[in-house]
């Protein structure tokens, strides 16, 4: 027996087996924790990162007439040399053709304005829900979630019926005699805004509601007591305290709205340029998978980089 083993046996004899058992238990618990956290991570890794890398791969390929319609990333030449081919032309092409830049900018404009509109509409609604009685609260929340029980497409088609030149709203206004000719609403940016705001406002309300629910009402009283008028209290206490909800809700609206395809396609027709539609056309009509993939990758960068900057600023703030 070497010295270590003697030591171990001695310590066990002293009755330390109990701590040994504790350590084993601790290790099992740690393994369990790793498993519980690990499985969802693994899931995300496979079903998020893997498609991302496939798209990334396609974006640096060349468009060819074949199936699938892009050149392989790695191929074996006859001499047995492994040939790695990266084509950055697709990205350069996005920069050269004004269409893509315009689409990105217009998408960002529409999603920014829609996010602000959602915030403007959603904030008072969330506030009102938080302040209502427990029974009313449940009913109101249900009403926010209720639209999700019908198909999204169906709701967009319903809006087409409402907004069309011969649609419900125009017919009604003409019948009232307020207007003589129908107002052009469908197949214009207006309809796209209506559609996006209508569709995404619940995604603004729910995180705001969750955040405001935790808001301590005595803080408002404290502000009033110290001389703050209602609006000042709102500006100096309510808004900063609900900022996490505002940010979460805005991201939930802004990100999907930027890449939105169905709403601009159905409600905007050909008149509203948004990157989602460009991507769709590139993929389906043009059959240019590499350019479509490049559009998607750039869209991701456009959305992720501002978020990372925001996160960086925020983590800096909490430390300071």
């Amino acid at each position: 027996m070497n010295g270590r083993a003697v030591e171990l046996v001695a310590s066990l004899r002293e009755g330390d087996w109990r701590t040994a058992a504790d350590q084993l238990l601790q290790r099992l618990q740690n393994a369990w924790k790793t498993l519980v956290v690990g499985v969802p991570y693994f899931w995300l890794l496979i079903f998020f990162l893997a498609p991302f890398f496939i798209v990334l791969k396609i974006s640096v390929a060349e468009s060819i007439i074949a199936s699938p319609p892009f050149s392989p990333l790695v191929d074996l030449t006859e001499e047995g040399i492994i040939n790695l081919k990266l084509v950055l032309d697709n990205y350069a092409y996005l920069w050269e053709d004004q269409l893509y830049i315009d689409s990105y900018l217009n998408s960002l404009k529409i999603s920014t304005i829609s996010t602000l509109l959602c915030l403007l509409i959603g904030y008072p609604i969330a506030y009102a829900i938080v302040r209502s009685s427990p029974t009313a609260k449940n009913i109101l929340l249900l009403m926010i979630i209720l639209p999700f029980w019908t198909s999204f497409l169906l709701r967009v088609y319903a809006w087409m019926g409402l907004l069309a030149d011969q649609g419900t709203i125009n017919s009604f206004l003409i019948w009232l005699g307020i207007i003589d000719e129908p107002i052009r609403m469908l197949y214009a940016e207006f309809a796209v805004y209506v559609g996006i705001v209508y569709t995404y406002v619940p995604f603004m309300i729910l995180p705001l509601y969750a955040n405001m629910e935790k808001l301590d009402i005595t803080l408002h009283e404290a502000a009033a007591d110290l001389g703050a008028r209602p609006f000042t209290t709102f500006r100096t206490v309510t808004v900063p305290m609900t900022m996490p909800g505002i940010v979460a809700g805005s991201l939930l609206v802004f990100i999907p709205a930027t890449g939105e395809f169905v709403i601009p396609d159905l409600l905007g027709g050909g008149n509203v340029l948004m990157i989602g539609r460009v991507l769709y056309n590139e993929f389906n009509a043009n059959h240019d998978w590499p350019v479509a993939a490049a559009v998607a990758i750039v869209l991701l960068l456009v959305l992720v980089i501002p978020m990372m900057i925001y996160q960086h600023i925020q983590s800096g703030e909490t430390e300071g």
């Binding site: 301590d216 009283e221 404290a222 009033a224 007591d225 008028r229 206490v237 305290m241």
Partner: peptide, 19 residues
């Protein structure tokens, strides 16, 4: 209204502004 009274209050929960 409270914001015009020459009165201040110390709250039981203190109600300090956390931000």
């Amino acid at each position: 209204p409270p914001y015009e009274r020459p009165v201040n209050m110390m709250f039981q929960s203190y109600a300090l502004f956390p931000h």
